[in-house]
């Protein structure tokens, strides 16, 4: 039932973004918003708090996104939060991005890096992953300074960890 609801919201978001003719921008911004919410517990709790008035929760969305995001992105996030599904926002966005990629016969690759990747780096990484997995991937970069350096790529349940953080962790484990 929950999967059906999340899928329904994902389809709605895709349909609105397509209707507005801003699918790529909206999907990218939704992905970044979802990652920001996922990594910030206080923000997630605030957007999920049904005791707060809807206007208050939507006001938080407006304050965060405002003029920096596409209006459709802000409206869609506000809609999800307004319907009381703020806690499901990361899952809804993940499903949205995955279904969008699936519509283009591609698989979503979540890439964590301390810096944003250039378009060349994204295309080379996509090509490298395709050569390894045999399927097209769409790179979605998440800026995560905790990786210190390098990249962590998540494709479904598979993880390719080339971060400095993992090297440090391995070094720490070797000493313990």
């Amino acid at each position: 039932m929950a999967d059906d609801r999340i899928g329904g919201y994902a389809d709605a978001l895709l349909a609105v973004a397509a209707a507005e003719g801003a699918s790529d921008v909206v999907e990218d911004e939704l992905f970044r918003v979802a990652e920001a919410v996922r990594s910030n517990d206080n923000l997630l709790a605030t957007l999920s708090d049904r005791n707060l008035p809807v206007e208050r929760r939507q006001g938080v969305v407006e304050d965060l996104l405002g003029s920096s995001a596409h209006p459709t992105t802000t409206a869609l996030v506000s809609m999800v939060v307004g319907t009381g599904r703020g806690a499901d926002l990361p899952a809804i966005v993940d499903e949205t991005v995955a279904r969008s990629a699936a519509g283009r016969n591609a698989t979503l690759a979540r890439v964590r890096s301390a810096i944003d990747l250039t378009d060349d780096q994204k295309s080379r990484l996509a090509a490298a992953i395709k050569s390894k997995t045999g399927s097209d991937v769409e790179i979605r970069v998440v800026i995560d300074e905790s990786v210190l350096g390098g990249v962590i790529t998540e494709i479904g349940d598979d993880v390719i960890d080339g971060s400095v953080r993992s090297r440090m962790t391995q070094l720490r484990e070797s000493f313990s």
């Binding site: 890096s113 810096i115 990747l117 780096q121 080379r124 990484l125 090509a127 490298a128 992953i129 050569s131 390894k132 350096g149 390098g150 990249v151 790529t153 390719i160 080339g162 400095v164």
Partner: peptide
């Protein structure tokens, strides 16, 4: 480091 990672994956 990102380039090195891409090369390693490739």
């Amino acid at each position: 480091l990102v380039d090195a990672y891409i090369d390693e994956v490739a």
